[in-house]
């Protein structure tokens, strides 16, 4: 299991940041991702392996009204 923005989702082998965002339906183009507190740059999302039990924060940079 990993936690994404406080919600638990299943962990699997070779789980990438890209895959996590897809599972969460996070399609917004400007998201800052932190895995266990460390920022993972967007260019690394398809390669970076999210470890089991990780805490992922996907902070949407959206300003709104």
């Amino acid at each position: 299991m990993i936690t994404v923005n406080g919600k638990q989702i299943e962990w699997e082998e070779n789980l990438t940041v890209d895959r996590v965002l897809k599972t969460m339906n996070y399609s917004f183009p400007k998201i800052v991702v932190r895995v266990n507190g460390k920022v993972v740059e967007q260019k690394m999302w398809s390669a970076y392996k999210v470890p089991n039990d990780a805490e992922v924060q996907a902070h949407h940079l959206i300003a709104g009204g």
Binding site: N5, H59, H60
Partner: peptide, 18 residues
């Protein structure tokens, strides 16, 4: 009017206000 506070993403998506 949302000019006082717009917290939807902070609250609902980013879960910064649990």
């Amino acid at each position: 009017q949302h000019d006082e506070a717009w917290l939807i993403f902070m609250d609902m998506v980013n879960n910064q206000l649990p």
